[in-house]
Nucleic acid binder design. Sequence first.
RNA 1: GUGGCCGUAGCUCAGUUCGGUUAGAGCACCUGGUUGUGGUCCAGGAAGUCGGGGGUUCAAAUCCCCUCGGUCACCCCA
Length: 419
Amino acid sequence: MADPIYRAPKGTRDILWPDSARRRALIDRFAEVVGTAGYTEVVPPMFEHLEVFQRLGDATEVVRKEMYDFEDKGGRRVALRPEQTASVVRAFAQHRPTPPWKTWYAGPNFRYERAQKGRFRQFDQVGVEALGPEDAHLDAEVIALAWRFYQALGLRQVGLQLNSLGGPGDRARYIETLRDYLTAHREELTEESLATLEANPLRVLDSKRDGDAEVIAAAPNILDHLSDEASAHFDRVREALDTLDITYTVVPSLVRGLDYYVRTTFEFTSEALDAAQDAIGGGGRYDGLAAEMGAPATPGVGFALGVDRTLLACDAEGVFGGPTGVIDVFVVDTTGGHEALRLTDLLRRSGLRVDRAWDDRSMKAQMKVADRSGATLAVIVGTEELDAGEVALRDLRGDTGQETIAVGNLLDVLRERLR
RNA sequence: GUGGCCGUAGCUCAGUUCGGUUAGAGCACCUGGUUGUGGUCCAGGAAGUCGGGGGUUCAAAUCCCCUCGGUCACCCCA
């Protein structure tokens, strides 16, 4: 392609129609679904003080190398948000809405990394956060919302993986047990995993490298290291999901990348996607995060779903197709355009979707544009019609021909025909 | 951050192996065939610094180097 002077920055892209319409429809659908459970929208800023995101964990990739951080003109260290949970919890700490605070969001996040299929430097997520209750049924509600949303899109091949990391104490104890185990088997681990082991033993379990598979399979199971409370919480989540007929797989190695997670964690994967990026959503509990942001200790649970990946999954399953027509009526005017100007305005004010031709082109050319527009009807104004105070109405989607009607009747006739 | 593959009209691509006349095709676009009527068909037209820079050569889309971009994978995650 001839290189344009400028192109969208690396890892970003322009979303044009019809993709933009599909993205909008997905977000609208999400708002509908979570609206049925009383979640209200929150719109946090797209950047925060760097410290807000450093709460995600110093050892996480997101914080270590993927942060879009910079110094603003006032000398403040700020960063584009790599995810929205931290921002939402910060907003909770700042505004102290009365718990339970159940909120949803949709918008872009930013991570500095190399793009690949389903992964961009700017990417949209939709998600919910629910702060206040510790009730395991809230975990189930949150998971169920994501599940119902996928169903509403028509997705059938979505898998739910579930795990519990236990409370903060369980988690810390397990990490030591795991570190000991992995260290004892360091000879059998890949080089990459040895590096991960230093920084964050839990995430070694996340490795997809074949060389690590055996060691990971035989690793101590976190579910055997849960406190009674954490274990009971997990059981209650599972019972709730069973009650709701939501199928899941317990995956003890599911640890997820952010350090704030405790107790319930979960991830949604599309079985229809064969790309490496098959995780289409995930979330969990973060009971300690609000306190870290300066709020009174407040439990929280939520999820984030990747808009792009969800749409990829929809493509793979052939559901949630593109938008239908954008125009109902197309006005063709070969008398100079004044009638087109007047009629489009008249019809639009009545709520019809109307477009017209420009540049006073030939009727043939205007008819071609009318056809391409996807409109169902063409209103044609030629000199004969103009003189007689009439317009021709032509069906563009069938072969029923055309009729001549008085301009005064146009709106009524169109409404009838478009019914 | 690491590695593989790929950059030729708006889009999808041929041509690159063994360098050589004005760089091609399909789709899309424009005009005409049809002095008023689209969707099919026919004819014609417009459209390309062959991603960019440097080098080798009488001659480079084609060979070499660098660079930018895309893509896929690793890492990690949505």
